[in-house]
Nucleic acid binder design. Sequence first.
DNA 1: CGCTATCATCGTATTTCGACGAACAACGAC
DNA 2: GTCGTTGTTCGTCGAAATACGATGATAGCG
Lengths: 92, 92
Amino acid sequence: MVNRRKDEHMANAFRALGHPVRLRIVRILNDEGASFAGDITRRLPVVASTASQHLKILREAGLINDAADGPHRYYSVNKQALLDLKAWVRKL
Amino acid sequence: MVNRRKDEHMANAFRALGHPVRLRIVRILNDEGASFAGDITRRLPVVASTASQHLKILREAGLINDAADGPHRYYSVNKQALLDLKAWVRKL
DNA sequence: CGCTATCATCGTATTTCGACGAACAACGAC
DNA sequence: GTCGTTGTTCGTCGAAATACGATGATAGCG
């Protein structure tokens, strides 16, 4: 099948979104713009190390970007990834 | 947050879609219409009992419907659930 | 330099997922 | 009733996910 690899990639993205905390992270970044890790974590019901893991999962799924900024870390949504997601879902 | 419960529900749906086999099931039902369990299973790289489990997960997530039809079981997409999913994703 | 702040990563315990084969249930044909 | 077909559920086991605290790494302040 032509789209087997694409499906694999999309399944990865969906799996990353398939957790309340991670869904909330994406919504925070999407609704309120890029943020520092601490500002995100402060709004989540988990400790910092756990939040960091969730951010890593979203990053590895390609859904968010990160950049170092002094001792802080700046996170933002990957707009292109979200566009791809929307395009895929629209076909359902 | 107003949409905490909604997010929980959407995370469930995303988690259900977060597996290649289940994504493929949804695509089969969506692209080719409702099907018997056996016809679906035959196109998946897993044995029948595993396919049945995946169908159950999708059903419990509300993404597909099922109906008994003699010794067969008939599966179809839940159009409303997909509409909800699309509406949610569109807001990203 | 030492000190604080900010995050990430490591180590670990618990839970959940995902796969299979075996056993079970429901239906139709006979 | 007994088969044969279809599909689900059960039992099990290894792999992965999820949470936490502890430790490590880096940047800026003094």
